[in-house]
């Protein structure tokens, strides 16, 4: 039996590539070279499926020019901002993604940022590594306690709810802001706020877990930051565009925001250099889902979806 041809645009975890090579005539990218739209069109000739990544922009023109042999696009991500879904619909080309499987790892990253920012991990680490540590003192690098605080979650989707579960183990009370109140079983005791002011006033620790896009651009701006309790902790492992960087940097300088932890940035992999001059921020390079377990699970899920479409079945992870 002839295996279907699968173009994989970037290097994937070994277990995922091994499965792809077994089930498909897989076109891999062992050098992990970036692929332009033109590269993808060239490499996709005769392919049955394309597995892409968020770094590749599949705009309307690229989608329109894909060879007719391509029956499904898979993306190694939850988000699909990089794919022109409308153009896919016109071509009747299904798209599959990787929902759910990275919720836990990303929520874990949020909790890491909350703890690391509050407990001044960056400064402590740098002090120890410098070799200049002169010993314990009762007032050295005092952070702020995490357990027992009020946590505000902006965007109570899957990741937000996973984070809420983790935070409860720390005795944190959970507040959330979302377009609508969740059913009680999903709320699990979290307190819904239908306006920003009461939500922000309650948020001693604020975690942004909302989607990106125009509706949430610069949501955390100077005006909203002013509504947080003084010295609040802010973390973001969702989308860099949710934050007005200049406003957050100013608030970190004045102490209105005590500490921040960030995994995502507007304009990645560049970031506002103002952050690098601050000691009271902990910065991670957008690796919220970067665990072996999660990346393997993402790869297997997207391959499941591609295989389902090629077999004429409805995939569980179809983008609608």
């Amino acid at each position: 039996m002839v295996k279907p041809v699968l173009l994989i645009t970037r290097r994937l975890p070994p277990a995922v590539e091994a499965r792809a090579a077994e089930h498909f005539d897989a076109r891999l990218n062992p050098d992990d070279s970036p692929r332009s739209g033109a590269d993808i069109l060239r490499l996709a000739q005769g392919a049955d499926a394309v597995l892409c990544c968020p770094a590749e922009k599949l705009d309307g023109a690229t989608i329109g020019a894909l060879p007719a042999t391509v029956k499904v696009i898979g993306t190694f991500s939850v988000g699909f901002d990089h794919i022109d879904i409308a153009a896919c619909r016109v071509r009747n080309l299904p798209v599959v993604n990787t929902p759910d499987v990275l919720s836990v790892a990303t929520a874990e990253c949020c909790m890491l940022l909350i703890l690391a920012a509050s407990r001044r991990a960056g400064e402590g680490e740098r002090l120890v590594r410098s070799g200049g540590w002169t010993g314990w003192t009762p007032t050295q690098l005092l952070g702020t306690q995490v357990s027992g605080r009020r946590l505000g979650i902006f965007g109570m989707g899957r990741i937000g709810r996973e984070l809420a579960r983790m935070a409860r183990g720390f005795g944190m009370s959970v507040h959330y802001r979302d377009v609508a109140r969740l059913p009680e079983p999903l709320e699990a005791g979290a307190i819904w706020h239908d306006d920003d002011a009461s939500f922000l006033a309650a948020s001693e620790v604020l975690s942004l877990n909302a989607p990106g896009g125009a509706a949430t651009r610069d949501w955390l701006n100077a005006e909203r930051i002013a509504l947080l309790p003084r010295g609040a902790v802010v973390v973001n492992a969702a989308r860099g565009t949710l934050i007005d960087d200049a406003a957050l940097i100013a608030a970190l300088q004045t102490g209105q925001v005590g500490f921040a932890g960030l995994d995502v940035y507007a304009g990645e992999p560049a970031l506002n250099p103002g952050y690098l001059a601050l000691e009271n921020v902990v910065l991670l390079p957008h690796l919220g889902s970067a665990t072996r377990e999660t990346r393997d699970a993402m790869g297997h899920l997207v391959l499941d979806g591609i295989e389902a479409v090629l077999a004429g079945r409805e995939p569980a992870n179809l983008v609608r």
Binding site: R10, R11, L12, P13, P14, D32, C53, A55, F76, V104, A105, E108, A121, G122, E125, E268, P269, A270, L271, L276, V282, L283, L284, P285, H286, L287, A290, T291, R292, E293, T294, R295, G299
Partner: peptide, 23 residues
């Protein structure tokens, strides 16, 4: 990760690169 950021980052990571362990 922190050291990468403090050095200025400027390069995205591949999907199999710099992976941690899920706790």
């Amino acid at each position: 990760y922190e050291a990468i950021m403090r050095a200025g980052w400027r390069r995205g990571y591949g999907l199999g690169e710099m992976l941690g362990v899920r706790a």
